[in-house]
């Protein structure tokens, strides 16, 4: 589950999930919604993502930044997230995923925001009785 929050000069995403991998995938869904308001994306191409960090918060920023990179540099929109794995070994968190999507088509897609960056502002992943939750602020 996620919720889009609008601040005076910025935009944030509140995300809940039953597990940490679920939280990352839900965050990607929320981010997609925020950028494109659920416009349908065709699965024309797949891109692989592999990331690592010594903490999950930093990895979450990297994960969303990677998706933003596809949009801002390659004008490529991701739709579905597939084969998602997230695990820690010897204190290092590793994320692997494949995302499918298509090139931005101005006739069908309208991007609402130019996301400058996914920020670390008060970023914390906390445990809840039902899983975990977090709040991510985007600089726009």
């Amino acid at each position: 589950m996620y919720k889009i929050l609008s601040h005076t000069a910025d935009i944030a995403l509140e995300v809940w999930a039953e597990s940490l991998p679920g939280l990352f995938q839900e965050a990607a869904r929320g981010f997609h919604d925020l950028l494109l308001e659920d416009a349908p994306i065709r699965a024309e191409q797949r891109r692989q993502i592999e990331l690592s960090s010594d903490e999950p918060e930093d990895l979450l920023v990297q994960w969303l930044s990677e998706l933003n990179y596809f949009v801002t540099v390659h004008a490529w929109l991701w739709g579905a997230v597939e084969d998602f794995t997230l695990a820690a070994e010897n204190g290092i968190w590793r994320l692997k995923a494949a995302v499918s999507g298509e090139a931005l088509d101005a006739q069908r897609h309208y991007l609402y925001f130019d996301i400058k960056a996914v920020t670390y502002h008060q970023l914390e992943i906390t445990d809840t009785p039902d899983g975990c939750q977090t709040r991510i602020v985007f600089d726009i």
């Binding site: 609008s6 601040h7 005076t8 000069a9 935009i11 726009i140």
Partner: peptide, 9 residues
């Protein structure tokens, strides 16, 4: 100037 109203509002 600085914003006084969120984009949503």
């Amino acid at each position: 100037a600085g914003r006084i109203m969120s984009r949503h509002k």
